[in-house]
Nucleic acid binder design. Structure first.
Length: 804
RNA sequence: GGGCGCAUAGCUCAGCGGGAGAGCGCCCGCUUCACACGCGGGAGGUCCCUGGUUCGAUCCCAGGUGCGCCCACCA
C-alpha cells in the first residue's frame, strides 16, 4: 500500500468487479422489504453533466445504504427518447449533408435516428459507471422500447376512454424553429425589449376614433374586434359601435370585456384571436371569428394580403410606415415585457391556432393533490410542497401532440367521414362507420407523456410482473427542481390513475450547481464543468463526497474545494488504514472492547452513525457527509489512532484486534459515500468474509451506546489523555470538560497559555456579568441560568489549571 | 404581477436564541517510523442595513437593499 492513495486504478477495478459479480443486480421478491429508486432517465443523446453527477451521488448514497441495510434494493436505470432534443440532433446531422428530414421521409428518418443512437447514444450509463453508480445496468430501459411503447399507447387509450383527451383547434405555443406546438411548461417568459405602438382606429360612423396599443402591429391584420372594460366611462358610448381596421379596412365591433385592463395604455385593446392567447379566449366568448395572418414558419401568410411572404420584421416596418403616412400612428415608445420563448430552441413563441391533442388535467390532478396534502407523498425540502400544490391547483389543459417524427406516434386513426378511432394497435376499420380508409395521426406525443409512466412502465406495466409487484411503489424520486411539474407531478398523476397507488413516497429536490461565477452551468455559455474531469483529477469517491457537500442549498456555486476535501478524506482513510494494517501482526478484527480507547472509539462511531442515519432519513446529505469527515479526522485519526499508536507498535494484541474492528466499522460507515477506497481497504483486512458493498450495515449496539454516558466518557477520556502525557484535572461530574479542555491536538498549557488565559478571562467576565444581571437570573429558564453557573465554574477551574 | 431562496473569514459554504465555525487560500514552524493530498501554531469577521421582541439576537419578527430562481394569456 502506497502512502499516496491514487484512486483511478482502484476505482475502475472495483467498478468492474462489482458489476461482474452481480452486486448491483436486483431480483424481484415480493416477500422481502425493498428499496427502489428509478434513475431519472437522461436523454439518450445526452452526456453526464454536473447535475446528473450530483443526483447520482445522492441516489447511490441512498441505494448503497439501504443495500447494506439488507433491503431488496433496486436502482432502475434507463433513458428518455427525448423527442425534440433527439430529433434536433439528427436533423443537425442531416443538415451537414445538406439534407432535411423531409428529403428522407419519415421511415428513413426514423431508421437513421435508431442507427445514430446505436452508434453514439447512451453514453451516460458508462459515465455513471465511472462515478461508481450502482444501478442495475442489466435492467436498462428506454421509453421507445417495444414494451414501453405498449405502455404509452395503453396510457393514451386509457385517457381517451375515460374522457380526458380531446382534439381541438385552439391557440397553442408554436415554436417556429421546432416546427411544433409545445406545452405551457416548455415556454420561458423572458423580459424582452419591444416597441409599443399606439394606433388610431377610425370609427365606422366617422364620429372620431378609438386608440389602441400593440407591440406587434403585423398581427393587426387579423384583428376582429376592439375591446374595452365594461365599466370604463370613457368608452361607454362606443361599445356596440364599429371601428375601421386601418390598411385592411375591415369593420371591427367594439365590445366590452372584463379581461381588458382599463389602466393599461388607452384602455382599449385590439382583439386578435388568431395570435394572442387572451384574445383567443375573448374571441371565443364573444363568438368572434379567428383570422390567421402568420404561418407556421412565423412569416406572413397568404391572408396577409400585400404583406404575404414577408418576415414579421419586414411586415412590421411596412405596416408602421403605412400607418405613419396615413396619420394613424400616435406614438411609439420603448416597452419592456415578458415574452414567451421556446425552452428547447430559444426562439420566440408564436401563439397561433392549430389542431392539437389536449389532455384535460383537473380530474387527474385532484387525487394527486390529495396524496401530497395528506403526506403520502412528501417533498424534501418541504417548501416544494407549496410549489407543487400551487401549480396543481391551477392546472390547465396539457397540449400533448408534437409535430415531430421521433416519438410515440399518436394512436388515433381518422376515416374519410371525419371519425376518430383510438386503439393500441392499427384498427381494421373505423369504430364508428366501419370505413377501412383510415389514416393514422401524423403527430407524436410529448416526451413527458411517456416519462410520466417511468416508475412502473420500467417494471413491466401494463403486464403484471414480479418486478411490478416487488418494486412498486418506488421509494424515492430525486430530481432537479426544474422538472417538478414536467415530470414529478405527472408521475404522481399517472401512477394514481393507472396503478391506483402513489409512484413513490418521497420526492427529493436537490440543489442546483451553478458555475463558479454564479451563472448557470451550460454548455452553450461555456460555463459547464465536466464531472468526469473531477473524477479524473480527484477520484470518483472525492467527487461524490464533494457533490454531496454541495447538495443541500437551493443554489450553490461550484468549486473544487469540497471535492478536494473528499480527496483528503479518502487519502486520510487510506493512510490510517496503512497504520493499522501494517501493524496488525497476526491480529484478527475483534470488536469486544478491551480497553478505554476501544470502547471510546466504538462509542464515538456508534454516535456518529446514529446522527448520520438521522440525517439520511431527513434527506440532509451535506450534514451527513460532514459528520463522516469529522468522525474520521477528529475522532478516528487525530485522537484514537494517535492514542493507540504506541500500543500498536508494542504488539499489543488487544489494541491491534480492536483497531481492526474499529476500522471495519468506520469503513462501513463511509462506504455509501466513498465506496471504492473503502472496498479497497476492506479487501486488505484479514478474515474478510464478503465484499463491503454487501456487508450488513451495523446494528446499534447497546453496550457502545451506553458508553456514551457523559460521565463515563469524560473519565475514560481523561485517563487516555493522561497516558498521552496531557495534564487533565477532573472535578465532580463535569462531563463537558472533555469537549472543552482536552480536545485532541489542543492540549492545555502547551505554550499557547497566554491566549487561552485571555480567552478564559473574557469568558469569566461575560458569565459573571450575566449572573450579576438580576433580570437574567429571574427571567431566564432555570436550565439556562444553571448552565451559565456551570460554565463559570468550569472556566474558573480551567483558568486555575493553566495558570497554576 | 404573484411566490420562493440566499446575503457569515480573501474564496466556497456550515451553524440558526446564550462561547463566531469548516475546507481551500495566506503567514510561521516541523522530512516525529500512517499520511507534506501531512502535523503543529497563527493572522483574518460592524454574521447586508434599519427597527422590533427578549435579561440576551448572526439566529425570531417587520421593513429595506442586493443577488438568484420559479410561476404568470395585460396588449
Amino acid at each position: 500500500m502506497e502512502p499516496l492513495y491514487s484512486p483511478a486504478g482502484v476505482e475502475q477495478r472495483w467498478q468492474r468487479i462489482w458489476e461482474e459479480e452481480g452486486r448491483y443486480a436486483a431480483e424481484p421478491d415480493p416477500s422481502r422489504e425493498s428499496f427502489v429508486i428509478a434513475l431519472p432517465p437522461p436523454n439518450v443523446t445526452g452526456e453526464l453533466h454536473m447535475g446528473h453527477a450530483l443526483n447520482a451521488s445522492i441516489q447511490d448514497l441512498l441505494i448503497r445504504w439501504h443495500r447494506m441495510r439488507g433491503l431488496n434494493t433496486l436502482w432502475q436505470p434507463g433513458y428518455d427518447h427525448a423527442g425534440i432534443a433527439t430529433q434536433n440532433v439528427i436533423e443537425r446531422e442531416l443538415a451537414k449533408e445538406g439534407l432535411s428530414r423531409h428529403d428522407l421521409g419519415r421511415e428513413k428518418f426514423l431508421e437513421r435516428t435508431w442507427e445514430w443512437l446505436r452508434k453514439y447514444g447512451g453514453v451516460i450509463m458508462s459515465q455513471l459507471r465511472r462515478l461508481g453508480a450502482s444501478v442495475d445496468y442489466r435492467r436498462e430501459r428506454m421509453t421507445m422500447d417495444p414494451d414501453y411503447v405498449r405502455a404509452v399507447l395503453r396510457w393514451f387509450v386509457h385517457l381517451w376512454e375515460h374522457g380526458y383527451l380531446y382534439r381541438a383547434n385552439r391557440i397553442v405555443n408554436w415554436c417556429p424553429r421546432c416546427a411544433s406546438a409545445v406545452s405551457d411548461l416548455e415556454v420561458n417568459h423572458l423580459e424582452t425589449d419591444d416597441t409599443l405602438y399606439t394606433i388610431r382606429y377610425p370609427l365606422a360612423d366617422g364620429s372620431g376614433d378609438i386608440t389602441i396599443s400593440t407591440v406587434r402591429p403585423p398581427t393587426m391584420l387579423a384583428d376582429v374586434a376592439v375591446a374595452v372594460h365594461p365599466g370604463d366611462e370613457r368608452y361607454r358610448d362606443l361599445v356596440g359601435k364599429e371601428a375601421i381596421l386601418p390598411i385592411v379596412e375591415r369593420r371591427l365591433p367594439i365590445i366590452a370585456d372584463e379581461r381588458v385592463d382599463p389602466e393599461f395604455g388607452t384602455g382599449a385593446v385590439k382583439i386578435t384571436p388568431g395570435h394572442d392567447p387572451m384574445d383567443w379566449e375573448i374571441g371565443r366568448d364573444h363568438e368572434l371569428p379567428e383570422l390567421t395572418v402568420i404561418g407556421l414558419d412565423a412569416r406572413m401568410n397568404d391572408e396577409a394580403g400585400e404583406f404575404a411572404g414577408l418576415t414579421q420584421e419586414d411586415a412590421n416596418d411596412r405596416i408602421v410606415a403605412r400607418l405613419e403616412d396615413e396619420g394613424l400612428l400616435v406614438s411609439r415608445e420603448p416597452f419592456r415585457h415578458a415574452v414567451g420563448h421556446c425552452d428547447r430552441s430559444g426562439d420566440r413563441i408564436e401563439p397561433l391556432v392549430s389542431l392539437q391533442w389536449w389532455c384535460e388535467m383537473k380530474g387527474l390532478a385532484a387525487p394527486a393533490i390529495d396524496v401530497v396534502k395528506d403526506g403520502r407523498v412528501r417533498f424534501k425540502p418541504e417548501r416544494y410542497t407549496k410549489v407543487y400544490l400551487d401549480w396543481m391547483e391551477n392546472i390547465r389543459p396539457w397540449c400533448i401532440s408534437r409535430q415531430l417524427w421521433w416519438g410515440h406516434q399518436i394512436p388515433a386513426w381518422y376515416c374519410e367521414n371525419g371519425h376518430t378511432t383510438v386503439a393500441e394497435s392499427t384498427p381494421a376499420a373505423c369504430g364508428e362507420c366501419g370505413s377501412t380508409h383510415l389514416a393514422q395521426d401524423e403527430d407524436v406525443l410529448d416526451t413527458w407523456f411517456s416519462s410520466a409512466l417511468w416508475p412502473f412502465a420500467t417494471l413491466g406495466w401494463p403486464d403484471d410482473t414480479p418486478e411490478l409487484r416487488t418494486w412498486y411503489p418506488n421509494d424515492v424520486s430525486s430530481t432537479d427542481r426544474g422538472i417538478i411539474f414536467l415530470w414529478e407531478a405527472r408521475m404522481i398523476m399517472a401512477g394514481l390513475e393507472l396503478m391506483h397507488d402513489i409512484p413513490f413516497h418521497t420526492v427529493n429536490i436537490h440543489s442546483t450547481i451553478n458555475a463558479p461565477d454564479g451563472r448557470r452551468m451550460s454548455k452553450s455559455l461555456g460555463t459547464g464543468i465536466d464531472p468526469l474531469e473531477t473524477v479524473e483529477q480527484f477520484g470518483a469517491d472525492a467527487t461524490r463526497y464533494g457533490l454531496l457537500k454541495m447538495s443541500s442549498t437551493q443554489d450553490v456555486r461550484f468549486s473544487t474545494g469540497p471535492i478536494e476535501e473528499g480527496r483528503k478524506l479518502a487519502n486520510k482513510l487510506w493512510n490510517v488504514s496503512r497504520l493499522m494494517l501494517s501493524n496488525a501482526g497476526d491480529a484478527r478484527p475483534d470488536q469486544r472492547p478491551r480497553d478505554v480507547e476501544e470502547r471510546w472509539i466504538l462509542a464515538r462511531l456508534d454516535a456518529a452513525r446514529a446522527e448520520i442515519e438521522r440525517h439520511l432519513k431527513d434527506f440532509e446529505f451535506a450534514p451527513a457527509v460532514n459528520r463522516l469527515y469529522r468522525v474520521t479526522f477528529d475522532d478516528f485519526c487525530d485522537w484514537y489512532a494517535e492514542a493507540i499508536k504506541p500500543r500498536l507498535y508494542d504488539g499489543d494484541e488487544d489494541a491491534r484486534a480492536t483497531a481492526l474492528a474499529a476500522l471495519e466499522r468506520l469503513l462501513e460507515l463511509l462506504h455509501p459515500v466513498l465506496p471504492h477506497v473503502t472496498e479497497e481497504i476492506w479487501s486488505n483486512l484479514p478474515e474478510r468474509k464478503t465484499r463491503l458493498i454487501v456487508t450488513p450495515w451495523p446494528e446499534a449496539d447497546e453496550a457502545y451506546a451506553s458508553d456514551l454516558d457523559a460521565l463515563t466518557r469524560v473519565q475514560e477520556a481523561a485517563e487516555i489523555f493522561r497516558r498521552s502525557g496531557v495534564r487533565v484535572e477532573l472535578e465532580g461530574d463535569d462531563a463537558r470538560i472533555f469537549e472543552a479542555v482536552v480536545r485532541p491536538g489542543k492540549t492545555v498549557g502547551d505554550g499557547n497559555a497566554a491566549a487561552e488565559i485571555e480567552r478564559l478571562q473574557q469568558e469569566i467576565a461575560r458569565a459573571e456579568g450575566m449572573l450579576a444581571n438580576e433580570r437574567f437570573v429571574q427571567n431566564a429558564p432555570v436550565e439556562v441560568v444553571e448552565s451559565e453557573r456551570e460554565k463559570l465554574a468550569r472556566y474558573r477551574r480551567e483558568l486555575d489549571a493553566i495558570s497554576g
